[in-house]
Amino acid sequence: MVVHGRGAQSGAVPSRFGLAARDTDGDWLDAREQVDGAESKLRTTVTIERPRSILSFNKSPDIPFDRSVNAYRGCEHGCIYCYARPTHAFHDLSPGLDFETKLFAKPDAAKLLRETLAKPGYAPAPIAMGTNTDPYQPIERSYRITRSVLELCLELRHPVTITTKSARVLDDLDLLAELARLNLTAVGVSVTSLDPKLSATLEPRASSPAKRLDALGKLVAAGVPVHVSVSPIIPSITDEFLEDILDEAASRGVRSASWIMVRLPHEVAPLFREWLETHFPERAGKVMAIVQSVRGGKDNDADFFTRMKPTGVWADLIRNRFRVACRKHGIGRAQIDLDCSQFRKPSRNGQLDLF
C-alpha cells in the first residue's frame, strides 16, 4: 500500500539504539478495518521543545560553516533522501513517517541565540540555517521562528545564511533584502528536478520546482545573493534535469551553483530502497548499484574528507556535465564573504552595548 502525500512508506524504529521494535499483530491487521473502520489519514503534530541552547558548533572539514541554528526538529517536507532523518531515532521515534509527521518547534530560538551572542568572548561568523531541517517548512508560517532569528540577526548585524527548498523564504524577503544590503546574508535554494509529479513523490510537501525557481528570481530582483543547489542528484532518477535546472536558474539571474550526490546514512538507506521499490521498481536495482559505485561499494560513505566527494565513472560524468553547463551559463562557485565587522554584541541584560 502506498502512503500518499508522504515521502517515507513506513514508520519502523531503528534497532541501533536498542529501542523496542513496533510490530502490529497479524491477526489484528486482518480485523482492524472491520472494528475501527478505514485507517485515518496521517496528521502532522507539533511538540514545543525548550532546549537550553540553540547555536550548534561543528568542526567538520566538509562543510563551509562552523555554526548553525535549527528552529525545528523533523521536517514536514518529507524528502525521502533527507540525511537528517536518523536524528529522530534519538527520541525513540521513526526516521520514517515520524520524522515528517511528529515535529518539534523551538519558539525560544531567538531568545537563546541572543543570550549566546552576548557571552564574553563570542566571535561572530556566519550562522547557517537549514543545515539539518528546512527553516521554511510549512509550520514556519504559523510559528515564525526563522523570522524571529532573522530579525535578531538584523538588529545585531550578525551574518546569517539560509538553505531551503521552499518558496516560503519569500515571506521574509523584507528582512533578507535589508540583510543583503548590509552584506549580512546569502540564500541557497535546492532544486532537485523540474518534474512536479516526481517532486510530489520525492519531496511531497516541499514547494514545487516552478515555485522554487520563481523564488530564486524574486530573491535576485531584491538584491539578495542567491545560490542554486542541484541537490541531491539521484542517478537514473533526477540526473537528467541537471542542465535544465542550471539553465532555468541562470535565466533568472542566478550566478552561483553547486551539486551534491545523494547520501544515504543509517536508516535513510532502507527507507530510500523502500521508496524506490514503491515508485520505481523497474530501476531500483540500477539506482542502488550506481549509488554504491560512487561510495566505494557501500550505500553511504560517512568518513570526513570523502563523504561529500563521490568517486567513479558516474561521479566523474556528473561532475563534467555540471562543469560544462556552468561554463555555458556563466555560473561560478558560491563565494560567501559576509561582513562580520558590523556585529553589535548585546549586553547580558538584553540591550545593545554602546562600546
Rank of each mutant, 00 (worst) to 15 (best):
R6L: 15
A8I: 06
A8Y: 01
G11L: 03
G11S: 14
G11D: 14
P14Y: 01
S15F: 09
L19N: 08
T24S: 08
G26S: 15
D30N: 05
D30F: 10
E33H: 12
G37Q: 02
E39L: 07
I48M: 10
E49A: 15
R50Y: 06
S53H: 10
F57M: 05
S60D: 13
P61L: 07
V69H: 04
A71D: 02
A71I: 02
A71L: 00
A71M: 09
C75F: 01
C75N: 00
E76S: 14
C82R: 01
A84M: 04
H88E: 12
F90D: 14
S94M: 07
D98V: 04
A105E: 09
A105R: 01
D108P: 05
D108T: 06
A109C: 12
A110P: 02
A110K: 03
L112K: 13
E115N: 07
T116R: 13
P120T: 09
A123P: 02
A123N: 03
A128D: 09
M129W: 02
T131K: 07
I139N: 08
S142W: 01
I145P: 08
L150K: 06
R157V: 07
R157G: 08
H158R: 09
T161F: 01
R168C: 01
L179K: 04
L179D: 07
L182W: 13
T185Q: 01
T185Y: 04
G188P: 03
G188Q: 06
V189K: 03
V191D: 07
L194T: 06
L194S: 09
K197P: 01
A200G: 12
L202Q: 06
E203F: 01
S207R: 00
P209R: 05
P209T: 01
A210H: 08
K211C: 05
K211T: 05
R212H: 04
A215C: 02
L216A: 07
A221S: 09
A221T: 03
V224K: 00
P225Y: 00
P225I: 02
H227D: 05
I233C: 09
I234T: 06
D239I: 00
E240S: 14
E243C: 04
E243A: 09
E243S: 06
E243H: 00
D247A: 10
E248Q: 14
G253I: 02
R255L: 04
A257L: 03
A257Y: 01
I260T: 10
H266Q: 14
V268P: 04
P270M: 06
R273V: 11
R273L: 12
R273S: 13
E274S: 10
E282Q: 15
M288I: 09
M288V: 10
V294F: 15
G297F: 00
K298D: 14
K298T: 13
D299C: 04
D301K: 09
D303Q: 15
K309N: 13
D316G: 14
V324E: 15
C326D: 10
K328Q: 15
K328D: 12
G332L: 10
I336C: 05
R344D: 07
K345A: 15
K345F: 03
S347L: 11
R348F: 06
N349D: 15
N349M: 08
G350A: 12
G350Q: 06
D353H: 11
F355W: 11
